[in-house]
Design a protein around this nucleic acid. Structure first.
Lengths: 226, 226
DNA sequence: CTAATTAATATTGTCGACAATATTTAGGTT
DNA sequence: AACCTAAATATTGTCGACAATATTAATTAG
């Protein structure tokens, strides 16, 4: 899968595998949002002991994909509009800062690599045809690279390690294919330019606007539906 | 304890208690930073089974206080200057945004309560005498209130749930009592004013400067020591 | 028939033992 | 003596069973 998380270490233990499977299942909605998680049932389903399952559940909790109450159990998080907007607020702050840091800390090679990636996106059939590819994988790839470029392990952990699974979940469940594809591409280009110029202040501002625009796009859609 | 985390739910299970004890031990350095964690040894020390201990370890990992490698074990995180600066970068971004949100979302009552808290800090003996109290608990209390005032659950979780334990750990281990006490107090006052004026943009800017000033203060200290 | 109380059931929390993997120690070869 | 190899040891991962708590069902009083 194209946007495999560079921060996720190699999957070795069975708890890792089950975590991976459940991650996909939750993100894609196979395990429904808001549903209660039955440990005995899932343990039987994955053919593992409850201890191992609970280990996997702990990692899902780290990604904020499930919530646990003592002596009661776990539930998959709900996907609400309010929750989505909350995430966008966090992303605006963190990715904005990541972008500023990337402008300071990215190596020249990393910048070259990023430009190459964007050029590839520009040529990609999917972008010309429609919105699908770029919106999904390409967009996430771009944001990933910027975050990694910050060279700030805390930022990387929070954004790539936990928040992005939630972002993907929302994208899957709400089926986001907004008409911002080409516009977003242009914004990405300008962001890279700012990073290449080592202009952290501008880079942060552009990234924040970029994310805020997506958020407002959603807010508009919602208000229209009412 | 004055700055008990409002997001931490009631401690009911034994794993919770052990988590709490280990949390304090790590923050205060009783369990040394960078040290390896022996599951059999600690399980014996706390008189619990390894399963329960591992449950506690999982929560510590969620706070980024320990790091685990598959089939190898857990280590307490190291406290490096670089790591501290990374955290300040994240705080600047997230608390800045939290402050902006607080300006939008805090209730009038919450703002009144905050002003009262600050007035109390101004009168507090500790502030007049020295730097100790305000730097430690008062400062954290202030930041907590702002974060909670954002009414953004994601922000609250990340900042209060995980990042602040690390911040406290650094404060304990590096023994931070900078000469910024009265200056910081003034900055807090202006931030609250901005929130009361519902000026989110200014509130964010002031909070970011406030945190950036702390970071630069540390950077200066370090460069002097070299 | 409704509501509260209690009994029955199911689920989560905790435990100790075994299996798989890593680390250390001992031994042998160059 | 240094280095690689292999046995021994210790540590982590996984399992199934029991205890504690919550949820549901049954029973009884009003």
């Amino acid at each position: 899968m194209a946007l495999d998380n560079p921060t996720t270490q190699a999957v070795v233990t069975t708890a890792d595998k089950v975590f991976d499977q459940m991650l996909h299942a939750i993100v894609e909605g196979t395990i429904k949002a808001g549903s209660k998680i039955s440990e005995p049932e899932l343990a039987k389903h994955y053919q593992i002991s409850r201890s191992t399952l609970r280990e996997a559940l702990n990692r899902l909790e780290k990604c904020h994909l499930i919530e646990r109450k003592a002596n009661v159990g776990s539930r998959v998080v709900e996907c609400s509009i309010a929750g989505l907007l909350e995430i966008y607020i966090v992303r605006e702050a963190l990715e904005g800062m990541a972008c500023r840091q990337a402008a300071h800390n990215m190596t020249d090679d990393e910048i070259i690599e990023m430009k190459a990636m964007l050029a590839q996106h520009a040529n990609s059939k999917a972008l010309r045809d429609g919105v699908s590819y770029y919106q999904e994988e390409g967009d996430l790839d771009f944001h990933y690279k910027v975050i990694l470029g910050s060279h700030n392990q805390q930022l990387i952990n929070i954004l790539c390690g936990q928040l992005y699974h939630l972002v993907r979940m929302y994208r899957c469940q709400f089926g986001m294919n907004s008409p911002r594809a080409t516009k977003a591409f242009d914004e990405h280009s300008r962001i890279i330019d700012a990073i290449a110029d080592r202009d952290g202040e501008l880079a942060e501002m552009l990234m924040r606007r970029h994310i805020a625009a997506s958020r407002k796009n959603i807010e508009n859609k919602i208000s229209q539906q009412l």
